[in-house]
Design a binder for these strands. Structure first.
Length: 647
DNA sequence: TGGTTTACTTAGCACACCGAGA
DNA sequence: TCTCGGTGTGCTAAGTAAACCA
């Protein structure tokens, strides 16, 4: 299957997107009308007014409104504002053991050969190591790609001795199959280890985690997110990445900069080595860094999301989104007015902002050509990425967007836009060729500068967070029914979550095992249906028996049958719900939005209101990240560090 | 002002792990 | 006890955006 076909399969149906956009538009229209009716009011009063119509809604809404209005939360904002003013100081004391280095290369056993042109060739250690990188990936699609093959071969030859280079001249004459088989067998052997052996490995990993996986930050033991250096291998760039297959070098202590406090115990480099640099910069949160050789970018060792530092940053993100809620109507009026501006730059900015707000597009920074896959975001859209239709699908002024976004995931959407937007797009496309920038007067920097003027801390990214959280809230309100079972409520939650994922274009490949596991689930459903039918027949008989005999024994039997039927029907319902959920989620990645875009306070408030245990929505790690404490039906919303800082 | 660098968040994939059910 | 399949976790690429610099 070609890449284009994969992309085709991976796009959401336009119907999903159109339905979602319309739902959001209706809400927006209502809000606009309401705000017109109210005329001039403080922004936060506007948002409260809408919600005040429904007491329960007010409670939920308060989880996503300006913190000044929430007793007790104002202090949190103030505390962080205070911290921010301290010249960006992130910590006072930081101590750690440095990164854990990838194990050195273990040569292949004598019985495993590499063949060139049918003849075994004993490779030098360096060349052999790189050959194993390729051999391991033999059953991966990457190795079928020409760019991957060429980059690999070119970098591999650099690792060869002059002798080897003389022999090995063409990749298609190389035979890595023995190497491949060796690693497949090794994986199988690892899987087949005894319980005790596996336990031993687990204990060793845990020991490593305990030794290198934690640091001390301002006197608190914090978990590190990635304490191991990235092992060498072949670069796996996504989409049509021009550098895929290139050799990712092994990271040595000499490449690593350590960041820790001056008075702490400086981590020891591995024996015989030294660090590139040891510094003490408390305005940054990273513990160690190095520059990787593929794109010359810096890689960092950072804290785990469960850490105080990350938690606070996350909380701040949602606070900014909450502040946006208070001014979003005003911003929308502003960009609508700017659609008619005499200044081209202003018009482009206003139209781009409309896309970012309405379609939750990413900002779209400029990228260096030829260095990465050709992907775009809003500001970097080109003429070739949009099509205009005066009329389509029964709507006027339809725009079709078709481009590759982050991770080369295709964004495809057909959406009716307001007339001035349509007219402006026609104008922006005039006298341009397909490869020209649609918004040629606009950059993400200028857009963000404009947003900064509208609201302190506002950037393009905030609109995604804001619209994602608002969508979740609206969908939860529309879909949840108090009388539903917990399973049905969770289905509603997943549907709301899914609406957000579709809005943000979070896609995933259909799991390889999907068809099979779906088939098995259907079989289970059929079997359960049969059981229900049988139980119904038995119940009927039991009723007749009790009617004719009327004794205690027949009554007891009847009650048992009733309970059995009830149980089976519930099981059937649960299976059907599971099947629906599974089918609807097969190509949608729910985790990304749940983890990065949805204010946990909304989910926790929903759990609390509808008696759904928080642990059914957030797993252990997610609860740790958000500091959400789970308790059946009465979950409290300490979604983040407490007001005084530590949890 | 515009290019570059740095620091951080967001993203999907692969695979290990673990529990349910046969 | 074994198998299957879902979930959780680790990994690292790919974004955003601010700071820096000439």
């Amino acid at each position: 299957m070609g890449d284009d076909e994969v992309s085709d399969l991976k796009q959401f149906s336009v119907k999903d997107k159109v339905a979602l956009t319309r739902k959001r538009e209706n809400t927006e229209q209502m809000k606009l009308e309401n705000s017109k009716k109210r005329k001039v009011k403080e922004p936060n009063q506007t948002s409260r007014g809408r919600c005040g119509e429904d007491q329960q809604c007010l409670k939920e809404e308060s989880t996503f409104s300006i913190s000044k209005e929430n007793p007790g939360q104002g202090s949190v904002t103030i505390r962080w504002e205070e911290e921010k003013s301290q010249d960006g100081v992130k910590w006072k004391q930081l101590e750690h053991k440095g990164p854990y280095f990838a194990p050195s290369y273990e040569p292949l056993p004598d019985g495993v050969h590499f063949y060139y042109d049918g003849k075994p060739v004993k490779l030098s250690l360096a060349a052999e190591e790189v050959a194993t990188f390729y051999g391991k990936m033999l059953d991966h699609e990457y190795t079928t790609k020409e760019v991957f093959q060429n980059n690999f071969f070119s970098d591999w030859r650099k690792e060869m001795t002059a002798e080897e280079r003389k022999i090995i001249k063409h990749l298609d004459k190389c035979d890595f199959t023995e190497i491949h088989r060796y690693f497949v067998d090794k994986t199988a052997a690892r899987k087949a280890l005894s319980r005790e052996e596996k336990q031993k490995l687990k204990e060793e990993a845990e020991k490593l985690q305990q030794e290198f996986g934690y640091c001390t930050l301002d006197g608190h033991r914090e978990k590190i997110g990635n304490f191991k250096t990235e092992p060498p291998g072949l670069f796996r760039g996504r989409g049509d990445h021009p550098k895929m297959g290139m050799l990712k070098r092994r990271i040595l202590p000499e490449d690593v900069t350590i960041n820790c406090s001056r008075d702490s115990k400086i981590p020891e480099p591995p024996a015989g080595h030294q660090w590139k640099e040891v510094r003490s910069d408390n305005t940054v949160t990273w513990l160690a860094s190095w520059t990787e050789n593929i794109q010359n970018s810096i890689k960092y060792v950072m804290l785990n999301p469960s850490s105080k530092l990350k938690g606070e940053k996350d909380w701040q993100k949602y606070e900014v989104a909450r502040r946006l809620k208070g001014v979003v109507d005003e911003i929308r009026s502003q960009y609508r007015a700017d659609w008619k501006s005499r200044e081209m730059k202003k018009r482009q900015c206003a139209v781009a902002l409309y896309f970012i707000d309405k379609l939750a597009l990413r900002a779209g920074n400029e990228k260096e050509e030829g260095e990465t896959a050709d992907t775009v975001g809003c500001c970097s859209l080109r003429v070739e990425h949009i099509q205009l239709y005066p009329e389509a699908d029964g709507c006027q002024h339809v725009v079709e967007l078709d481009f590759l976004g982050k991770d080369s995931i295709r964004y495809y959407n057909r959406v009716p836009v307001e007339r001035p937007v349509y007219k402006n797009l026609q104008l922006f496309m005039e006298n341009k060729s397909r490869g020209d920038d649609l918004f040629d007067r606009l950059t993400t920097t200028s857009l963000n500068k404009h947003l900064q003027d509208l609201m302190d801390g506002l950037t393009a990214k905030v609109f995604r967070t804001y619209n994602a959280s608002v969508t979740l809230q609206e969908q939860l309100r529309a879909l949840t029914r108090a009388e539903d079972s917990v399973a049905a409520k969770i289905l509603s939650y997943n549907r709301a979550n899914r609406a957000v994922a579709i809005l943000c274009n979070h896609q995933r490949a259909t799991p390889k095992t999907f068809e099979k596991s779906m088939q098995n689930l259907q079989l289970k459903i059929e079997a359960k249906k049969k059981q229900v039918a049988e139980a119904k027949a038995e119940l009927k008989q039991a009723r007749a028996g009790h009617k004719s005999r009327g004794d205690d024994r027949s009554r007891s039997f009847l009650e048992k049958r009733e309970r059995l039927l009830e149980k089976l029907e519930e099981q059937l319902m649960r299976l059907s719900t599971q099947a629906t959920d599974k089918e609807e989620s097969k190509q949608v990645a729910l985790g990304t939005s749940k983890l990065n875009y949805l204010d946990p306070r909304i989910s926790v408030a929903w759990c609390k209101r509808f008696g759904v245990p928080v642990e059914r929505i957030y797993n252990k790690t997610q609860r740790e990240s958000f500091q959400v404490c789970g308790s059946r039906g009465s979950s409290h919303t300490s979604a983040h560090p407490d007001r005084t800082g530590r949890r």
